[in-house]
């Protein structure tokens, strides 16, 4: 009897888990699986506490050892800040002139989007999954929010829970980004290779693409806005009968991420079309 009960329970559990897996294969909700979100909300503070303690211990040790070099570095950084502030003043006047010119010729200028800072709690490079756990505090996050750093595109939010969010990196094997070659505006799909690189697919053989070309987001996939840097073309060789095989080196150093920025999620397609329709009336 016990054996029969165990077999029935096994069947029920496996069917439930298969149902859960199959729903995720097609679903693209704003919050992600509820259980995943709840678990992240519970486990995130523990992970943050432990990495915080480790970071604190490491910080105390390095401070004791490097006081003199830190003071010298501090002086150097002050000089750099002064130089950057002067450069910022110059650039602000350039930006003002650009915006005025844009208005004058009716050019649709890029809106300045608010950036939401998030601390990286830890990076998980399990054998085939590439993700980050970030802390967004009480500001919250939404699934499909693009994540960037100072150098370029990091990935997108795939699950949220409490004040934490899980980010799928662009180098993950299941990641796909609508991309384009900045120089020629030729579009393709940037897919992660599961290690540290990206492949740009669906670039026709007759397209002009060469090593050194910058690859940016095309804004065609409904997730990432246009113009975010992804990487630089490293190698181009013939692929299939129709398309090139293009290898791209990401601009972001995923092993050195300390904090990232979350961009606002793009509006849903139905909401976007309704908004456009009301504008046209």
């Amino acid at each position: 009897m016990g054996g029969r009960a165990a077999r029935w329970l096994l069947v029920l559990l496996l069917l439930g888990e298969l149902l859960l897996l199959s729903r995720q294969a097609s679903k693209r909700g704003r919050e992600g699986p509820l259980l995943a979100g709840a678990a992240i909300g519970v486990l995130g503070p523990v992970a943050r506490g432990i990495t915080g303690v480790q970071h604190g211990i490491g910080t105390v040790g390095s401070r004791l050892r490097t006081r003199k070099s830190v003071m010298a570095e501090n002086d150097k950084l002050r000089e750099q800040v002064s130089a950057l502030e002067r450069q910022l003043l110059r650039l602000q006047s350039v930006e003002g002139a650009f915006l005025r010119l844009g208005d004058a010729v009716g050019y649709a200028r890029r809106t300045r989007q608010p950036l939401q800072v998030a601390d990286v709690v830890y990076a998980d490079y399990a054998s085939w999954l590439r993700s980050l756990l970030v802390y967004v505090a009480d500001k919250g996050a939404r699934v499909d929010q693009p994540v960037v750093d100072e150098h370029g595109l990091v990935g997108r939010v795939i699950a949220v829970g409490g004040g934490y969010a899980k980010v799928q990196l662009v180098t993950d094997r299941t990641s796909a980004v609508g991309a384009m070659i900045e120089r020629t505006s030729r579009q393709g799909v940037a897919r992660g290779n599961g290690h540290s690189g990206i492949a740009l697919d669906y670039v026709p053989l007759q397209a002009d693409v060469r090593p050194g070309d910058r690859v940016i987001t095309a804004g065609i996939d409904g997730v990432y806005p246009r113009g975010i840097a992804i990487g630089v073309v490293r190698e181009v060789r013939p692929g299939t009968q129709l398309f090139h095989h293009v290898e791209v080196t990401p601009l972001v150093d995923f092993g050195a991420l300390d904090h990232v920025y979350l961009l606002p999620a793009l509006p849903d397609a139905p909401a976007l079309s309704e908004s456009l329709s009301s504008d046209l009336r």
């Binding site: 699986p33 259980l35 678990a39 486990l43």
Partner: peptide
Amino acid sequence: LFQDAIFGGFFGLHAFADT
């Protein structure tokens, strides 16, 4: 399920295997 919450990816993947 605990592992899936930590690792990301498909939720339920490790739950199936570990069951």
